[in-house]
Computed example of a mutant assay.
Amino acid sequence: MVVWAWPPTARQMAVSGGVFVFGASLFGIGAYFSYANVAPQQELQKARKEILRDYLKKRFGD
């Protein structure tokens, strides 16, 4: 833990708060886009799995 030699100024506290809010908003935006893109990614994975399964069946038989 950091012990300051002097108390932070109001401007330093405001900048620290702004940086915290900015970081939290970036985290929230990332979580939103991650959740919003789950279904398309699952569909792509399913399509890849089917293509691989079809290839393996063609190549090696049932």
Rank of each mutant, 00 (worst) to 15 (best):
Q42T: 05
V2S: 03
Y32D: 10
E50S: 09
E50W: 02
V21Q: 08
T9Q: 01
A5N: 09
Q12W: 01
F27G: 13
L44S: 12
P40A: 02
R48I: 08
K58I: 00
S34I: 03
A14Y: 03
Q42S: 05
M1E: 14
K57S: 12
P40L: 04
K49F: 04
S16E: 12
L56S: 04
I29S: 07
M1K: 14
Q12D: 01
D62I: 05
V38I: 15
A47I: 14
F27W: 09
K46V: 07
G61Y: 00
V38F: 08
R59H: 07
G30I: 05
Y55Q: 10
Q41S: 08
A10K: 11
A24P: 05
D54G: 13
G61I: 00
G61P: 06
P7T: 01
D54N: 15
Y32Q: 07
Q45R: 09
Y32I: 14
G18F: 01
K58T: 05
K46D: 11
D54K: 15
G28M: 06
R59P: 01
I29W: 04
V38C: 08
R53Y: 02
M1R: 15
Q12L: 02
G18A: 06
Q42L: 12
W4M: 10
A39P: 11
A24T: 06
W4T: 01
K58C: 05
Q12N: 03
S16M: 14
P40E: 04
K49P: 01
E50Y: 03
Q12I: 00
T9A: 01
Q45K: 13
I29N: 03
L26H: 02
L44D: 14
D54M: 13
A14N: 03
F60G: 06
W4E: 04
Y55H: 12
S25A: 10
A39R: 15
A24G: 07
A39M: 14
V21E: 09
A14M: 08
P7R: 07
V3G: 05
V3K: 11
V19I: 07
P8A: 02
V2P: 02
L56W: 00
K57H: 10
S16W: 07
R53Q: 10
F22Y: 13
I51N: 14
G18P: 00
G30S: 13
